[in-house]
Design a protein around this nucleic acid. Sequence first.
DNA 1: TTAGTATATAATCATTCGCTTATATAATCA
DNA 2: TGATTATATAAGCGAATGATTATATACTAA
Lengths: 127, 127
Amino acid sequence: MLPIEEAAIILKLMGDKTRLTMLKLLEGDSCCVCEFVELFGMSQPAISQHLRKLKDVGLVKEDKRQQWVFYYLNEKHELYPLIKCVLSTLPSQHEKLLQLTKDGKRIECCSIKGENSQDDKGTNVRD
Amino acid sequence: MLPIEEAAIILKLMGDKTRLTMLKLLEGDSCCVCEFVELFGMSQPAISQHLRKLKDVGLVKEDKRQQWVFYYLNEKHELYPLIKCVLSTLPSQHEKLLQLTKDGKRIECCSIKGENSQDDKGTNVRD
DNA sequence: TTAGTATATAATCATTCGCTTATATAATCA
DNA sequence: TGATTATATAAGCGAATGATTATATACTAA
């Protein structure tokens, strides 16, 4: 496919306020599905379907930890320079995550990079 | 509207290969409707409708000269930095214009910046 | 004035999109 | 084990999208 056509596909996917906000959030940290459900106030299937689209074109990758699925930006994507430059023009969405933490809704999952803290499961919090 | 929502609208509009190519072409030069019709091999109404959408959000502006309407990038657009950074990651489409010139299909219109050469109308060529 | 060229708009239509509800799968917890 | 929690998928539906054809408008040329 022509590079400009590939770029158009990526831009169309980013041209949705929910997905664009998701990507901006993922610029700073990984998030799991239930955090997005909480943040956007949308149904869980709606969130899953947005993430599926982002995953299908390789914009995000997933990391299954315990009962959660964490999504993160795929910095190896062929068009990552395009993605990065778009995200860099957007205002930070980090305060949304801070609020989630304050509300005790942030998921803490300790198996990051293979580690596992057996005595820290459940509704734990990060940030 | 939130900045991220405005950005999503712009990105959605850029997320179409025809419009994205139009914008990349306009990065270097202004073009008129019939040139786009020739370049994309699409119907004239289809081209007009794409340009209308770009104009409605202020991404392009128009400049009527004689019987033609030339479109050009609106560098004053609030989100021009976003637009510019996206376009900068795309491959040049200039050879399309060169080919158009070779085919004698490029429109030469001399009323640029108020000038008017009365003895140079019709199917003239630029480039 | 009339014919031709350039452009815009309206109506239509098939496709895509984004959501919903219902349901399936997998992991955890009691 | 059975209940709960997290996630994914399928079906359905209304709205948006991108093209087409038909038509209207405006400028140019003879």
